[in-house]
Design a binder for these strands. Structure first.
Length: 261
DNA sequence: ATGCCTAAGCCCCTTAGA
């Protein structure tokens, strides 16, 4: 059974590519980030037509997350983490959606980028990570097979970026960001890609600018963290790298795990 | 030191991304 995460950077602009990927790789569960549409604009019928049922949490212009499942309706558990955005009075951003699908708890997230650093957006990122940790701890004690996946916007270690020096000032790899991420792992969660690729050098994102894709200047910021109940069933993990090189591609590639049963 | 590139909005420039 394949479970995937894909930051698609706009569901309207990406729809042909997204459907192509779903039909080619046929994940049982597909979590999307940055759908960049309000709830009304979500193309649910397009996914129904190829056998996927969905739940989604949209927002105007930015952010937005969705969970698709092959032939079954995801059962929503929670949306949002109860934390307001960094601008005065904007309310909560659409960055978190949790569901149960086929006996698996699926927590789909789009973590704040946090640039520029330092500043209110960086503070928001760190506060969001604390909220996420609280939620992960609450799910952990339920002892259900759980995957917490999505665009974490954190480069965990120097082996996860093409040139640490080039990114040194970026919010994605500040010590505070890394420490907050390390605390999640220290709670016991298993980073699926890292466990199977301990030497690093695996990228999930390549910038649109400066020929980053052609030069393979990427980094790893999309992660799948597994609870012990699911880590025991992990058989493979990978990145659908070739999708980054296609026409009208997202700047992220899909990442996935294969689990037993 | 800066732009590089892309998506969306209410719109031919700004905001946001990472």
């Amino acid at each position: 059974m394949k479970i995937a995460s894909f930051n698609i950077n706009g569901i309207k602009a990406r729809l042909p590519r997204l459907k192509e990927w779903l039909e080619e790789s046929r994940p049982a569960i597909a979590c999307l980030q940055e759908i960049k549409t309000m709830d009304e604009g979500f193309p649910a019928s397009e996914f129904e037509a190829i056998g996927y049922k969905a739940i989604w949490h949209g927002q105007k212009s930015f952010n937005g997350v969705a969970i698709l499942a092959d032939g079954v309706q995801p059962k929503e558990i929670q949306r949002g983490l109860g934390i307001d955005g960094p601008k005065e009075g904007e309310g909560e951003q659409a960055r978190y959606l949790e569901a149960e699908v086929s006996g698996i708890r699926v927590c789909n997230l789009y973590l704040p980028n946090g640039n520029p650093h330092p500043g209110p957006k960086f503070d928001y990122k760190l506060a969001w990570m604390e909220k996420l940790r609280e939620r992960m701890r609450a799910v952990w004690i339920e002892e259900v097979p759980t995957v917490v996946l999505g665009d974490y916007n954190v480069i965990p270690e120097n082996k996860d970026v093409w040139a640490p020096k080039a990114m040194a000032q970026d919010a994605l790899m500040q010590p505070e960001s890394r420490n907050a991420h390390a605390r999640l792992l220290a709670d016991g969660w298993t980073d699926a890609i890292d466990t199977l690729n301990p030497r690093g050098g695996v990228w999930t994102y390549w910038d649109y600018q400066a020929g980053a894709w052609q030069r393979d200047h990427g980094f790893r910021i999309d992660h799948l963290l597994l609870s012990p109940e699911l880590a025991d069933r992990l058989v493979a993990a990978g990145v659908d790298k070739d999708h980054r090189g296609r026409e009208k591609a997202s700047d992220h590639s899909p990442v996935w795990i294969e689990i037993d049963r």
